[in-house]
């Protein structure tokens, strides 16, 4: 009896393996396909120099000491960020009372040098770094699917 159920279980395992031989892949082929992240994803930060009220809350809340206040030519404090330390918790953007700091959905940036990842206020205000892909990627949106787990729809 035990031997028979054992045999059935063996056959069931092999059968399941055979069943899955029809390709139904979960992998996202990055960087040919790039996920367009939903609004509200905590990625790289955008800093708006105009909106900043020099309150330093962002630097004070930063858990990783990534944000530092720099004193500019006009004697006002402005935040600069060091992305080598940033942990993308988004606390700075959430505490910013004017929306001068906001998170973007950009997350995949590669740097050649460590120093490049330090953004003093002037560089920080210039805009968010843009990712570089080897060829033009196809942007997709990930969605849960009952059959396949995750489904990637083209934007």
């Amino acid at each position: 009896m035990g031997l028979l159920t054992n045999l059935v279980d063996h056959l069931k395992a092999i059968g399941t393996g055979l069943k899955y031989l029809i390709p139904r892949r979960l992998t996202l082929m990055y960087p040919e396909y790039v996920e367009k992240l939903p609004e509200g994803y905590r990625g790289y930060l955008r800093y708006d120099n105009e909106k900043c009220i020099h309150c330093s809350l962002c630097a004070r809340i930063c858990p990783a000491n990534a944000i530092k206040m720099y004193r500019g030519g006009d004697k006002k404090l402005r935040p600069g960020i060091n992305y080598t330390r940033c942990i993308f918790c988004g606390f700075c953007a959430d505490i910013c009372p004017t929306g001068a700091l906001e998170y973007t959905t950009i997350q995949d940036i590669a740097y050649e040098k460590l120093e490049d990842q330090v953004y003093p206020p002037e560089k920080f205000a210039k805009g968010v770094p843009q990712p570089v892909y080897p060829e033009k990627p196809i942007f997709i949106i990930a969605k849960v699917d009952e059959e396949r787990g995750l489904k990637y729809d083209r934007v």
């Binding site: 609004e39 509200g40 309150c55 809350l57 809340i61 606390f91 959430d94 505490i95 910013c96 009372p97």
Partner: peptide, 11 residues
């Protein structure tokens, strides 16, 4: 947006 802003007291 469904998000909140932190009050300054958090620091």
């Amino acid at each position: 947006t469904g998000r909140i802003k932190f009050p300054a007291i958090y620091v």
